[in-house]
Computed example of a mutant assay.
Amino acid sequence: MDLCGKTKPHMMYKNTEEIVGRKTCSSTGCLKAKNGNIIMKKDKILERWAEYIIYELFDDNRKHDHDVMKRNFADPPIMKDGVRAAIRKMKAGKATGPDGVAVEMIEALEEYGVEKLTSLLNEIYDTGEIPADVSRSVFIALPK
Rank of each mutant, 00 (worst) to 15 (best):
G21T: 02
I19Y: 11
G21D: 11
D43W: 07
M105E: 03
G21V: 13
G97L: 10
K63F: 08
I53A: 13
K116C: 02
G21L: 07
V114N: 03
E47Y: 00
I87E: 13
M11I: 11
K89Y: 05
D65I: 15
T127A: 10
C25V: 11
D81L: 06
M90L: 09
M90N: 01
N122V: 06
E129H: 02
W49H: 05
H66N: 08
I39F: 09
E107W: 05
K23G: 03
T16H: 13
M105S: 11
V83E: 00
E18M: 03
V20Y: 00
D126R: 05
T16S: 05
N35Y: 06
T24F: 04
Y112N: 02
H10G: 15
A74K: 08
I140V: 01
L120W: 11
G128H: 11
E110T: 12
E104P: 09
I124T: 14
A92F: 11
V138A: 00
V68R: 13
G93M: 05
E111S: 08
T118A: 03
N122H: 05
D75R: 04
E104K: 10
V68N: 13
V134H: 02
L121H: 00
Y13G: 09
I124V: 15
A102T: 10
R88G: 02
K42P: 02
K80L: 09
I53N: 14
